[in-house]
Structures are given as C-alpha cells and as structure tokens.
Amino acid sequence: MIINLNQFISAEKPYWDELETVLEQIEKKPEQGMSLEHLKRFHYLYQRAAADLAKIMTFSAEPHIRQYLELIVSRAYGEIYESRDVSSAWSPLKWFWQTFPQTFRTHINQFWLALITMLIGCLLGGLLVAIDPSTKEFLLPFSHLHDDPSQRVAKEESSSKDRLAGAKANFSSYLMTHNTRVSIFTLALGITYGVGTLIMLFYNGVILGAVFWDYIAAGETSFLFGWLLPHGAVEIPAILVAGQAGLVLAGALIGWGGRPLTFRMRFRAISDHLVTLIAGGAIMLIWAGIIESFFSQYHEPVIPYAVKIAFGITEILLLTWFFARAGRLSPDGHATQATH
C-alpha cells in the first residue's frame, strides 16, 4: 500500500522542524539543562519522528524522506539515550588539581608497570655500556653523547660564551613539541596490546641507563645530576604518564580489570582518562622544555650543581606530593585542593 506522501509530509513536517530546532539547541549548548516540560516535549517529538520513520519504512520506499527521518531520529536518539555526564562548565584549574591526579591514582598499577619497564631498560643500558663502552655509539641517539663525558664537562665548564644565546626559545619549543610527539606516540602504541608502549618505555630506559653509567663511571656524577635533574625530574615522569595511558588503552583492548564489560564499554569507560593523562603529561613537558632550555644547559661556574640538584629534588618532591595527595577528598567530601 502506498501512503499519500504529500499529506503525510504536510502533517508531520512541523513536528520534524520542531525536533530539529530542539536538537540544534541541545547540540549547541549540551551543558544547558531542560525543564521537565521541555524534556517531555522533546521525548514526544522523538517518538513521533521515530513512528514516522517506521511508517515510511513500512508503507513507502521513498528514500529521501526516509534518510531525512533517519538522520533526525539518530540525532535525537543520541541525545536521549546518552548516559554519560556532560560537565556543566569545564574548569582548567579543577581539572589540573583534581581530575589529573585522581586519574593518575586510578590507574596507578599501569604507572608502576611503566616505571618498572623503564627501570629494567635503564639497568640493561647501564650494563651494556659497563661491559662494552663502545656500545653507547649504537645505543645513544645524540652524537654529543658519544664523546668522553670528562672532555664534555671540561669543555662546558670552561666555556665563557652562552652557546644557546639567541636560540633558547626556539630550542625550548623544539623540546616541547618533540617530547609531546614522543608521548602521544607512546600512548597511541597502546593499541598494539601495549607491546609498542612497553618497547618505547624500555628503549627510553636503555638510553637513560647508558648515559647514567657513562657519566658515573667517568666520575661526573655531579655534572650528570646537575644537568639532568632539573628537567628530567618532570620530563621522565611525563613520559611515564604517557606510557601509563598507553597501558590503560592496552588494558581496555585486552579486557583487564575483571568486570564483565564489552569491548565498547571498556573503551567508553577509559576515554576521558586517556585524554586527561596525555594532556597532563603535555603540560608537564611544557614545563620541562622551558627548564631544559633556560636552566639545565647552564653548568658550573654559571650555576652551582648543588643549586641545580636541589631544584630537581624539590621538583620530584612536589610532583610526588601532587600525584599522591592533590585532589584527594577530605572527610567532608571536598577535594583538598578545592579548599585552598
């Protein structure tokens, strides 16, 4: 049986238009709530459009009207059956001081796994250079690290001119963008069931271990810590946080966690966490990039190593406090940072 298409469209179009208007409003300002009356009307319009769709599919194969109805019904369906929270107003401060550390603690096991992987890489890198110092030429990606550490220290400490003069900002931006790229890549490799993420962490560990052993064996421990701690105290944890995010992604892929959730539900549950972790890590890398360019590259006699090491240790302590304590709920239910 064929329906009277003209009559059908004339009768129903005002309702479709009204539904479209409501959808436009919701999609423009999803955080804006609806009164009960508006909600009831929205639901009615959705059901009416859905019924029209059913009718047109049953009685007529007219494709344009069907596609149009499918489109508005699908948009309304997405709004009506979405159960995830729409935060009323996103606050960057609240996100940084509460959401980020809370998310970090939620997935602390993945962080420990990332740390252990990097430490194993570190041990292996150190061991390889200890057994055969020539391996550092293959292990270390930067040519300036291939030289004898003592010679480099002597050269840096005796240099009277600022080799980064007029290029600090550019160097800093290079560090920020490069390290953020590495972090995103480490996260994205989580899709390889975490294997790629673990390899990235392990490889970074190998490089660190090789550099550490090379400088310590050469008796340049103060220089090493004075050079690496100020920026490394934040940069290395940032890479670990990216690794943590990659392992969270891998966990969702594999189905860790015990709860009988479907593949889609697991991904849905972690999507906000992944973005929080990687964005938090990127902020840490901005800080690390500034410090590495403007502070870490200056050695004695310009800046005493004790000052640089103390600066790095202070950063580690603050970072530890941040991840361990920030955003914890006090007994009255408020986040500790929110009260400050």
Partner: peptide, 23 residues
C-alpha cells in the same frame, strides 16, 4: 564522525581518534 553506538559524540572520543593518527 559519529559515536559507534549512535550516541552523543564526546570530546574525549574526538581527542583519542585524532591522537591515534600517530599510529
């Protein structure tokens, strides 16, 4: 780009699909 279950698209979904371009 749409949610795979037809629900409302969230910012985190958009961010993740774009970050994964690296792979």
């Amino acid at each position: 780009v749409a949610d795979a279950q037809g629900l409302r698209l969230q910012f985190s979904q958009i961010a993740i699909r774009n970050l994964m371009r690296f792979v």
